[in-house]
Write a protein that binds this DNA or RNA. Structure first.
Lengths: 347, 347
DNA sequence: CTGTTAGCGCGTTCAA
DNA sequence: TTGAACGCGCTAACAG
């Protein structure tokens, strides 16, 4: 019989196109305005009307058109998140954090993966902004001047891991310089003096921050030396750098700090294959404290950054901006050193 | 007149609210219809008009309202992707694949993370559908009957890793049963007879598929035995299962197949800590072939599933549905066995 | 407390 | 080829 109803051309009240508020109004014998009021929980409406509207809504299977709603309100209830690489655990973590936090306020997030194409970043962000009420911008490699210009065109926006000159743009980030200094201190405390930094992508801002932290550390302690080697940001990059790293080791280096955990993990694997004992012959540390870090062999010493909390902070600020509240100041999280097994005293 | 515009309140072309098509029309001295035609690249428009419109658009920094557009067209150019857990590399991979594929057609994807809350899955999917033109549904634990009912309410939809009874709903997935059988064959070929399967989440459909594959394998070869142990789906779960796994080993088991790579990696770490040699004393295999698998110690034998391609396939089908094309049949990818170092002949 | 009216910004008829 | 007018579905102002 259900089949019958269907073949008959649709079930009772089943129009080909979704029901509109007008249909509901007609069926309930009231005005559209009343339907709207009921649906939006406006305070003073006759209980009887409420009843009839609810019934009509149920029978028609009515659902409001978000498009119409957006047009009227000028808001989407959607924010965009622009990321350079969804494959990176760091961004995944932030995305997840923002996503759940935003969901709590009825907002959803649109992902815009620029797939490492820095040149498309502005266009992507602009386009994303048109679809959404605000944007979370992760653009680690976009030159500062271009970034400054971009943010003012896509406001409201919260930028991640970039410090802006202009006020009015909240940013939340990680104090990479500070983190790396803490790591150097840890290593030096262990007795290391000759370190290597396996660098991240050249244009990456957070890489520059780490380099700055390293320079500070070198300046502070005369007999600490840090060699900078070209690395990258993925597992492959870490593995690929093994030659250079091992050469440095034979030349006297006793510890390596990788750009991030992925690089460290890749390096660890390659080192193992090569027969280099970690941390016996060489200490290795990462950055980010991705879940896998604790399960590596040996467990990776790293700097923990609160990804989820970071995402939540991003949302808090973004929500404020959308609501037109005064902009919150920038916040940066100081990474927490997580000492595990991959670092030890040199011998 | 430029002067006029300026004194009218702020910088040239800087109205408090974004410019509308009417503003452009006025400024260009043409009708809104003409502006619309120019912007949408309609064929026959006077070059002179085109010129003036373009100029006005530039001067005003005009950008069409997506909301209004959506209202007229009844389309968003946005699809939703409902996932149970964004932290899972499997879903991340698919998201990335769908995201880039969709972007190629001017579509964006909205993420809806149900955070493992199966009970909210329907509501989340429904809500997501209202905002978007279609949805990609990843609901591995939603009971079949509820799934069937859900999909017909949110069509157009493509379901991932679930086989549906009803036609009309394309699904793309992985042949887990087949994959696990290939793995059993590999292990048996190596000489293993007493295996253990570290199961995934109880209600997970793909876990059931693997179990079916295992049952088939057992039925096919009388002297192969597979013990099923409770596992999970994350690194922690794998590590937590080490007791049970080691007990099975001492009881004669020589190889373990984990629900996925994460579980296998967690187990590997725990086994190492416990001093159990892999693959010497015990062979271990995973599923999914996440990037880290190849860099594990020892490198993990696993079943490779083409995440990116899977995402692309999802998009192809979704696009077809949106365009109203006849539905494509379901596709399933057969995992490819990736033999590495964590499996070897028992001794 | 309810209904009527007027847009939100755009695409798309229909005449001219 | 161009422009005027209408409608997409909904909410907000204003009457009643």
């Amino acid at each position: 019989m259900l089949r019958e109803a269907i073949s008959r051309g649709g079930r009772m009240s089943a129009r080909r196109h979704p029901a509109t508020i007008a249909d509901v109004a007609a069926r309930a014998g009231v005005s559209q305005a009343s339907v709207s009021r009921v649906l939006n929980g406006k305070p003073s409406v006759d209980p009887e009307i409420v009843r009839r509207v609810r019934r009509a809504v149920g029978e028609l299977g009515y659902a409001p058109s978000m498009a119409a709603r957006s047009l009227v309100h000028g808001r989407n209830q959607t924010v965009a998140m622009v990321v350079p690489d969804l494959g990176n655990p760091m961004f995944q973590g932030i995305l997840e954090g923002v996503s759940v936090a935003a969901a709590g306020d009825g907002y959803r997030v649109l992902v815009a993966d620029t797939v490492e194409r820095v040149d498309d970043e502005e266009a992507t962000a602009l386009e994303a902004r048109q679809r959404c009420d605000a944007v979370v911008l992760c653009a680690p490699r976009l030159p500062a001047d271009r970034l400054e210009r971009l943010v003012e065109r896509i406001a409201p926006v919260v930028v991640v891991n970039r410090q802006l000159e202009a006020p009015g743009v909240p940013s939340v980030g990680v104090d990479y310089a500070r983190g790396i200094r803490d790591l150097v201190d840890h290593l030096v405390g262990l007795g290391h003096r000759d370190l290597v930094y396996l660098a991240g992508p050249e244009p990456s801002r957070s890489n520059a921050d780490r380099l700055r932290g390293i320079a500070d550390a070198e300046a502070a302690d005369a007999d600490v030396r840090v060699r900078v080697l070209a690395g990258g940001s993925g597992l492959d990059d870490g593995a690929a750098a093994v030659e250079a790293v091992d050469a440095a080791r034979r030349d006297g280096a006793t510890a390596v700090m990788a750009f991030n955990d992925l690089v460290a993990l890749g390096l660890l694997a390659a080192l193992r294959r090569r027969g280099v004992d970690v941390p016996g012959e060489l200490s290795v540390a990462g950055f980010d404290d991705i879940p896998m870090a604790a399960y590596a062999s040996p467990a990776l010493t790293t700097l923990s950054v609160p990804r989820a909390e970071l995402g939540a902070q991003v949302w808090t600020r973004l929500r404020g901006l959308i609501a037109g509240e005064p902009v919150a100041h920038a916040v940066t999280f100081r990474p927490r050193l997580e000492v595990r097994e991959s670092t030890a005293a040199p011998r």
